[in-house]
Simulated scan of single mutants.
Amino acid sequence: MAAEKKALESINPQAMKYIRQALSEICFGELILVAQDSRLIQIERNEKIRIQQNAPSCQRKAFEEKELSFLEEKIRASFKNLDYGQLVIVIKDGKVKQMDRTIRSRFTGMDGEGI
């Protein structure tokens, strides 16, 4: 029960609101969600501006609520059980193209305590 509650609280509603907003605004770039002790501690937003002659840099339409809910579910599932590390959400042309999950391991009791 405690583990389930811990997983549910890993991304709080306010942070998810920000993530949803960023997904709707970024045309090219990535969102990086940083985990520490199985909790979201930081969100990094890297946006790229593509310069194209005679054309807007991004042809996007707004996400429907159904699409945002699906992405939120995928993000929560990918972030679940991530003790230390990050989840990188790659966005190209206004669409989520991939998610990369990096897991870091902490080692204590060794020289230097941790990594």
Results as ranks from 00 to 15, higher is better:
residue 1 M to G: 07
residue 2 A to N: 11
residue 4 E to V: 10
residue 4 E to F: 07
residue 4 E to N: 05
residue 5 K to P: 00
residue 8 L to C: 10
residue 8 L to T: 10
residue 10 S to W: 05
residue 11 I to N: 00
residue 11 I to F: 08
residue 12 N to R: 14
residue 13 P to A: 12
residue 13 P to E: 07
residue 15 A to Q: 08
residue 17 K to C: 08
residue 17 K to H: 10
residue 18 Y to N: 04
residue 18 Y to L: 11
residue 19 I to R: 00
residue 19 I to F: 05
residue 20 R to F: 04
residue 20 R to T: 01
residue 20 R to L: 04
residue 21 Q to Y: 05
residue 23 L to S: 01
residue 23 L to E: 00
residue 25 E to V: 05
residue 25 E to S: 12
residue 27 C to A: 14
residue 29 G to N: 04
residue 31 L to K: 00
residue 33 L to R: 00
residue 34 V to E: 02
residue 35 A to E: 03
residue 36 Q to E: 13
residue 37 D to W: 08
residue 38 S to N: 09
residue 38 S to C: 11
residue 38 S to D: 09
residue 39 R to E: 11
residue 41 I to A: 12
residue 44 E to P: 07
residue 44 E to H: 12
residue 44 E to V: 08
residue 44 E to R: 13
residue 44 E to A: 11
residue 45 R to I: 15
residue 45 R to E: 08
residue 46 N to H: 12
residue 46 N to Q: 09
residue 46 N to A: 12
residue 49 I to N: 12
residue 50 R to T: 15
residue 50 R to F: 10
residue 51 I to N: 14
residue 59 Q to V: 09
residue 59 Q to L: 13
residue 59 Q to H: 15
residue 60 R to Y: 06
residue 61 K to L: 06
residue 62 A to L: 15
residue 62 A to K: 15
residue 65 E to N: 13
residue 66 K to T: 10
residue 66 K to F: 09
residue 67 E to G: 04
residue 72 E to G: 14
residue 77 A to V: 14
residue 78 S to K: 13
residue 80 K to E: 09
residue 81 N to Y: 11
residue 81 N to D: 14
residue 83 D to G: 10
residue 85 G to Q: 12
residue 85 G to F: 03
residue 89 I to C: 06
residue 90 V to N: 11
residue 90 V to E: 15
residue 91 I to V: 11
residue 92 K to Y: 04
residue 93 D to V: 02
residue 94 G to K: 04
residue 95 K to S: 05
residue 95 K to D: 06
residue 96 V to E: 03
residue 96 V to H: 01
residue 97 K to S: 08
residue 102 T to L: 14
residue 104 R to S: 15
residue 105 S to M: 15
residue 106 R to I: 04
residue 106 R to K: 10
residue 107 F to C: 00
residue 108 T to L: 11
residue 109 G to C: 04
residue 109 G to M: 01
residue 111 D to C: 04
residue 111 D to I: 06
residue 111 D to A: 05
residue 112 G to A: 03
residue 113 E to F: 01
residue 114 G to A: 05
residue 115 I to D: 01
